[in-house]
Simulated scan of single mutants.
Amino acid sequence: MDDHRKIVTLDEGSRLLLGISEQELTLEQFICCFDENSQYRLKQNLQFCAIQQHATMLDTKLHQEAATPVWVKIVAYPDPANPELIRGLLQNVEQSYQKANLLVEQQQRFQQLADSLPVKVWTATAEGIVDFASITFADFCGRDTESIVTDWLQILHPDDRATTLEVWQHAVKTKTPYKVEFRILRADGGYCWHLTSALPIFNEAGDVMYWFGSAMDISEQKALWLKADKLKQSLYQTLESITDGFFTLDQDFRFTYLNQSAAELLSACKQPAPGKLLSEVCYVAGKDFSPLTTAVQRAFYKQQTEQFRFTLPGTALPISFSIYPAEQGVSVLMQPLAVSARMAAAALP
């Protein structure tokens, strides 16, 4: 551009991009080749470049009437050999803008989806830095998403922070799925248990691009689990106090529990213990335990209660066995017949 004459000279590439055949344009004609909303700024940039002798840059669209209305980058810089000349570059950046707009659109759609889900959604960079939290997270905690992203550990119960951070750092370091339970601060100041998990999202080269995570409120389930644990402990205490033997087996007929009375009644077998198979415990060379093992298997597979009397090999005490099946295994009650007989006699009028 000749600043004295206010004439702009175009090379072939610029003419093709602008969709014109003229090699020379007045400054006003050149400026009118671009979007009306940016014409004033473009004129200012060119004047600044000519007066201050500093390079300028502007991204704008071609005028709507142009043959190819696309995004372009305009770079202007002073000619070092002639202060009255401004040299410039025109670059088609439409593809870059399309990619950028697509990325923005995808991000907006993701945020809308994340904010509509009932679980709390978050993402993190490949390095493990949290960079997004959904509105559901903010609403639950009673604070803005920016503060959650900036210092997410502050919304955790103080007793859970160290363990949670250790598990998270290990997952990021090993690039393996992350799952942990911790308590999150509610807006009212209370804490609720959440099951939080995240998966690393890999690119084609096998590198982690980002982490996608969620946090699900499990406070009600946690309360039920704690209640169930207490009931289980109470039940075990009761079972330990009774004189009858009682033991449970899983689907593979492996001991999961037995009280002291059951351990004593099974003392003629190999030492029973949680984790051992029934067939392993009920095996002594030359002894036949098949009535017991067969009855247990039959009760489980038919899902029918079995009751029978059997004297364990190596003992002289007949035992009444009651086998109660369930989907996850069986429960077995062992009552020495001498005790059963006394109970039956006491029940007679």
Rank of each mutant, 00 (worst) to 15 (best):
residue 4 H to R: 15
residue 4 H to W: 05
residue 5 R to S: 05
residue 15 R to E: 03
residue 16 L to R: 15
residue 16 L to C: 02
residue 21 S to W: 09
residue 22 E to Q: 15
residue 23 Q to G: 08
residue 28 E to S: 15
residue 29 Q to W: 06
residue 30 F to P: 10
residue 33 C to G: 11
residue 36 E to P: 05
residue 38 S to L: 07
residue 42 L to V: 04
residue 43 K to C: 04
residue 46 L to H: 08
residue 50 A to D: 00
residue 52 Q to V: 01
residue 52 Q to S: 08
residue 54 H to P: 00
residue 55 A to M: 14
residue 56 T to P: 00
residue 58 L to D: 02
residue 59 D to W: 03
residue 61 K to R: 15
residue 62 L to I: 11
residue 64 Q to Y: 11
residue 66 A to M: 11
residue 77 Y to C: 02
residue 79 D to T: 07
residue 82 N to C: 09
residue 83 P to S: 12
residue 91 Q to I: 06
residue 94 E to G: 01
residue 94 E to N: 15
residue 94 E to I: 03
residue 96 S to V: 08
residue 98 Q to L: 13
residue 105 E to M: 05
residue 109 R to Y: 07
residue 112 Q to N: 10
residue 113 L to G: 01
residue 113 L to S: 01
residue 117 L to V: 05
residue 117 L to S: 12
residue 130 V to G: 00
residue 133 A to S: 10
residue 136 T to I: 01
residue 137 F to H: 02
residue 139 D to Y: 04
residue 143 R to T: 05
residue 144 D to K: 10
residue 144 D to S: 14
residue 146 E to R: 09
residue 155 I to G: 01
residue 156 L to E: 00
residue 162 A to Y: 13
residue 167 V to E: 13
residue 175 K to H: 14
residue 177 P to F: 08
residue 178 Y to R: 10
residue 180 V to F: 15
residue 181 E to K: 07
residue 182 F to E: 01
residue 183 R to C: 03
residue 190 G to N: 10
residue 193 W to P: 01
residue 193 W to E: 04
residue 196 T to V: 14
residue 198 A to Q: 06
residue 200 P to L: 06
residue 204 E to G: 01
residue 207 D to N: 12
residue 219 S to H: 15
residue 221 Q to V: 02
residue 229 D to W: 06
residue 230 K to G: 01
residue 238 T to K: 00
residue 246 F to L: 14
residue 247 F to D: 05
residue 256 T to A: 07
residue 258 L to D: 09
residue 258 L to K: 10
residue 259 N to A: 07
residue 260 Q to V: 08
residue 261 S to R: 12
residue 262 A to Y: 11
residue 276 K to F: 15
residue 281 V to S: 05
residue 283 Y to I: 05
residue 284 V to D: 06
residue 286 G to K: 11
residue 286 G to V: 10
residue 290 S to M: 10
residue 298 R to D: 03
residue 302 K to W: 02
residue 305 T to F: 02
residue 307 Q to W: 05
residue 311 T to P: 01
residue 312 L to F: 13
residue 315 T to L: 12
residue 316 A to I: 04
residue 318 P to T: 12
residue 325 P to D: 09
residue 325 P to C: 04
residue 327 E to Y: 11
residue 327 E to H: 12
residue 329 G to S: 11
residue 332 V to N: 08
residue 333 L to F: 11
residue 342 R to C: 02
residue 344 A to Y: 15
